[in-house]
Each structure stands twice: as C-alpha cells, then as structure tokens.
C-alpha cells in the first residue's frame, strides 16, 4: 500500500494515489500528472513515482 505520508516532509501524498495510478495507466506522463496534482517537492514526487503496489501479490497468502 502507498505510504500515508511522504517519508521526508510528512505531506499526505497517499490521497493522490488513486488518481495518479489511474492517469499513469491511461498512458499519461508522470511528470505532468504530478505537476497537475500539485505535488511539487521531489521528496513527495519520489513517493508516488517509485511506489510498487504489492497487496495483489500477497493476497493469496493471508
């Protein structure tokens, strides 16, 4: 799951995750999406950019 807040500055970046994921999978450029969402600092940008969702992989092994 996406961390609730940015590890560095504490901004609540998880609230952007659904929209970010949706727009990225529709083929949009991550840079444009992050600019659009108002995620300015690079500490926050890397949180969304580098996140890998693993819940679906863990799902069968609860």
């Amino acid at each position: 799951m996406i961390p609730v807040r940015c590890f560095t500055c504490g901004a609540v970046i998880s609230k952007h995750w659904d929209q970010y994921k949706e727009r990225i999978s529709a083929g949009e450029d991550p840079k444009m999406v992050l600019d659009d969402l108002g995620v300015k600092r690079y500490c926050c940008r890397r949180m969304l950019l580098t996140h890998k969702e693993l819940v679906d992989i863990f799902a069968p092994y609860q």
Partner: peptide
C-alpha cells in the same frame, strides 16, 4: 479525517 481518499488497505474476497 481531513482527507477522505487516503487508502488504508485493499481487502479481497472474504476479508
């Protein structure tokens, strides 16, 4: 909650 759209956990069938 100040923001309603913070994902906490994804639940699957039966969870």
């Amino acid at each position: 909650p100040a923001d309603g759209n913070i994902p906490i956990i994804k639940l699957f069938e039966g969870q």
